[in-house]
């Protein structure tokens, strides 16, 4: 998937000279995951900008550059490091259009690798989507496949509003597929049904989409048909696809790595219970990380934290039997 991310950035920088990337080590080094590899040599220092290790400054500078006509792609090296920039993102980037009554806009993308299961420990494993999907004015996009990463990132770069683009680092090199040729755009918002089913609806994003598909395969052997919906975008959220699926199956399960309490699964569960209550034939189930401050380094404890296909399949079986 990392090649798809790099291709999207490269194509957009070629298409529009206003596009630039900035962040820690994105220049000469090409980013810690190689997402910007080769761009420094190709586009020059002014458009591939190494910044100080200061996330609030990175986002603040990107906001200003966007106000003055550029389209910055600000990379936060790990999502765990984004917290110093919370004020710039929430109080400024997401709010500028609104507070100016549509007079100003901040067209920018903030890319951040997120997620665990990579032995990253407490400060290189976090899932941060719930913090930011809560903020009107900010779009939160999470691709799970290379083709989507490519098409969604290109759409994000062309979007007139700020987009937080979260890339699960475990699938950077885990998932490979051909990316459609040409100027392939995936619109921000619509979810996609990765696997059709009739007994349970399963909602996920990022790495968890793949784990849910594996779990669904296990359930199929037991005669349980699971529909897996990859949400792809948490803000805006495709409520129609969520509700349509639940009205068909009558049972819903949401899977995410983030802590269970206040995680984005709670919002999906609330939407389902508010708008599809009459269709439910069981409780809305969440499979999520436990409520502990961070993902531990220790292998056994990291495994304990992370949802995986086995845990998800167990929850699905229990729900199917309800």
């Amino acid at each position: 998937m990392i090649e798809a991310v790099r291709a999207a950035i490269t194509e957009e920088m070629e298409r529009d000279e206003r596009v630039l990337v900035m962040g820690e080590d994105v220049g000469r080094k090409g980013g810690v995951f190689g997402a910007t590899e080769g761009l420094y040599a190709r586009f020059g220092e002014a458009r591939v900008l190494d910044t100080p290790l200061a996330e609030s400054g990175i986002v603040g500078v990107a906001i200003g550059a966007a106000l003055n006509g550029l389209i910055p792609i600000a990379e936060i090296q790990f999502a765990d490091f984004i917290h110093p920039a919370f004020d710039q993102i929430v109080s400024e980037a997401a709010r500028t259009r609104y507070r100016s009554n549509g007079d100003w806009s901040v067209p920018m993308v903030i890319r951040a690798p997120f997620g665990g299961g990579v032995h990253g420990g407490l400060y290189h494993s976090q899932s941060i989507e719930a913090f930011y999907a809560h903020v009107p004015g900010l779009k939160v996009v999470i691709p799970s496949t290379p083709a989507d990463a490519h098409g969604l990132l290109k759409s994000a770069i062309r979007d007139p509003d700020p987009v937080l683009f979260l890339e699960h680092k475990k699938i950077y090199r885990l998932v490979a597929e051909e990316v459609p040729d040409g100027d392939h755009l995936v619109p921000i918002g619509p979810a996609v049904v990765r696997r059709e089913g009739t007994n349970i609806s399963c909602f996920a994003w990022g790495l968890m989409t793949h784990y849910c598909l594996q779990a669904a395969e296990q359930l199929a052997a037991d005669g349980v048909s699971v529909e897996v919906v990859d949400l792809r975008s948490l803000a805006p959220l495709d409520r129609d696809t969520i509700l349509q699926s639940v009205r068909k199956t009558g049972k819903a399960i949401v899977v995410h790595e983030d802590n269970i309490t206040g995680g984005f699964g709670a919002e999906i569960a609330a939407i389902i219970s508010e708008h599809a209550f009459d269709s439910l034939d069981g409780p809305v189930v969440r499979v999520a990380g436990p409520d502990i401050p961070a993902m531990p380094f220790n292998n056994a404890q990291e495994d304990f934290f992370m949802p995986n296909p086995t845990k998800i399949a167990e929850a699905m079986k229990k729900l199917a039997a309800y």
Binding site: G60, A62, G64, A65, L67, N68
Partner: peptide
């Protein structure tokens, strides 16, 4: 001072352009 970082970004866009 959060708008000072933004002002630096505005000035950077000026310089780049």
């Amino acid at each position: 001072g959060r708008h000072v970082a933004q002002a630096a970004g505005i000035a950077y866009a000026t310089q780049v352009s």
